[in-house]
């Protein structure tokens, strides 16, 4: 689904955030992206979202080479990659329903299709009862579920989450993880950057670790850090 070949990223100010990254993520996988602050996780995500250009290497999405694409094609790539951030990014003056419907309106979905699909997605993230609430009337976990609903309402094959539980307490974070696993079980490929050690350890999913811009570990059913055997 996602393939990176010898990817490097140097920012315009000269900082090299990624060195020679290789990875291949299959359709339907759930992958954690871990590493200390400044390791390059968010940079990798920005490359996948075509928010930043690639300095060297090649990147493929769903079989298509997206290393360099003209600006006008970028929106169509983003429609294949849903994204969720730590800070939710909801529109404060729109209701939960409208926040989600907004994503469909933008890509020109038919009103009938929107009316059918939005309630379905809201019930998937267990927010049917909050459809007409505004974001500031919701808890952090609920807001993040709205954000997730918005990111998947157009049915993208890939969902990327940059520290989606970063602002949430452990119990709420677990709720979010349930939702993500649910989405993953329906076939969506998920890449999640996180510092949440417990979550990563509990889930036993593939873990890709970055350190100072280098890929240092890529482990099936891995943990947050390399286990140091107890003596």
């Amino acid at each position: 689904m996602i393939k990176l070949v010898n990817i490097s990223k140097e920012y315009r100010n000269g900082v090299t955030a990624l060195y020679d990254i290789n990875m291949e993520i299959q359709k339907g996988e759930f992958v954690f992206l871990v590493g200390s602050s400044g390791a390059g996780k968010s940079t990798l995500i920005k490359l996948l979202l075509k928010e930043e250009g690639i300095t060297r290497g090649r990147m493929y999405l769903d079989g298509a080479d997206i290393t360099r694409v003209p600006n006008r094609r970028i929106p169509y790539i983003r429609r294949k990659v849903g994204v969720v951030f730590q800070d939710f990014r909801l529109l404060p003056n729109k209701t939960v329903y409208e926040n989600v419907a907004f994503a469909m309106e933008i890509i020109g979905a038919r009103p009938r299709e929107i009316r059918r699909r939005v309630p379905l997605i809201l019930s998937m993230v267990d927010l049917s009862r909050k459809a007409s609430s505004f974001p500031d009337q919701l808890s952090g976990g609920e807001q993040q579920r709205v954000s997730i609903a918005r990111s998947i309402v157009n049915n993208p094959p890939v969902l990327i989450a940059d520290e989606p539980t970063g602002n949430l307490d452990p119990d709420t974070a677990d709720e979010i993880m349930k939702v993500l696993v649910d989405i993953n079980n329906r076939g969506t490929t998920i890449v999640m950057a996180t510092h949440a050690r417990d979550i990563v350890n509990k889930m036993k999913k593939r873990v890709i670790a970055l350190e100072d811009g280098r890929l240092v570990r890529d482990e099936e059913k891995g943990g947050y850090s390399i286990e140091i055997p107890n003596i």
Binding site: R78, R89, F102, I106, S151
Partner: peptide
């Protein structure tokens, strides 16, 4: 605008 971009709105 930022959100619109992430959801794939065209320019």
């Amino acid at each position: 605008i930022n959100i619109m971009k992430y959801v794939g709105a065209t320019n």
